[in-house]
Amino acid sequence: MKLPSFDYQAPASLAEAVALLAAGDGSARPIAGGQSFLPVMAFRLAEPSLLVDLRNIPDLSGIKISDAGVRIGAMARWRDLLDDVRLAEAMPLLPAAIDHVAHYQIRNRGTVGGSLAHADPAAEMPTLALTCEAQIDVVGAKGERVLAAADLFTGALQTSLEPDEIIVAVRFPAWAKTKRWGFEEFSRRRGDFALAGVALCYDETEGRAANVRIGAISVADTPIRLKNAEAALEGRAVDAASIEAAMAAASGEVDPAGDIHASARYRKALVGTLLGRALESAAGRKAR
């Protein structure tokens, strides 16, 4: 499983990187941590002519926390997020979810931007971005643009990025300290891709849920929002009855595929189970 042959460049600026990609006729690929893409190449499922390594480009990493929310540079590694104690305060859903990403060594190289660009529906970051309505800053040959997370993911391992576009950062909107949240995923072993997962957050006003956002992992070709489950909770108290209704709605609205690890029927039920557990922990967690 040796890698196929390719050229390699590690430019020192974004402009250079974009130019290299643009000149590559679609067969040049940017590489961040490489923790997902190098295995793809090892299986020779991708054979790019040129890898443009983003590691020498300044200002692509870093985590900025402000009133506007949390901005994570594309080259920030999983471990940078887990090491940043401010996040537990600023957006606790993030570290809770990222704790499920792969293993120790992978987290030392894998990046947030790489995960978004890889667009694996079984990964955590794409669903987090979608659920929290994050904005993705992108730079390409035609200039900068901002993509809503919902517009980034177009299919399994497919995005709306042009071949010359590079993700610069992901920006999560402001997170009210009183926000309630939950994250549950289930995988066959520690660090494996989830058989299903749920990320959610909502505001609570006068005992009722508002702005309910529920995203699911690994039950479709892309990360998806569970709109029916959201509707089942919006404006209601999060209690046994509404949780049950949301669970049923979640299982009802997904149409997952079966594979060698789990049947479709199981995944459909599992997403409801996990939603129930995530809601219970969200509701049960002490209000801050």
Binding site: P39, R189, R190, D192, I260, H261
Partner: peptide
């Protein structure tokens, strides 16, 4: 619990990596 070499009806082995052939890990 976890290790299985699965074939499809055409006789193709669907398990081609250690992400699919699930041996026990330290946390299990």
């Amino acid at each position: 619990f976890s290790e299985e070499l699965v074939y499809n009806a055409e006789g193709q082995l669907l398990v081609g990596s250690l992400a699919d052939y699930l041996v026990p890990l330290a946390s299990d």
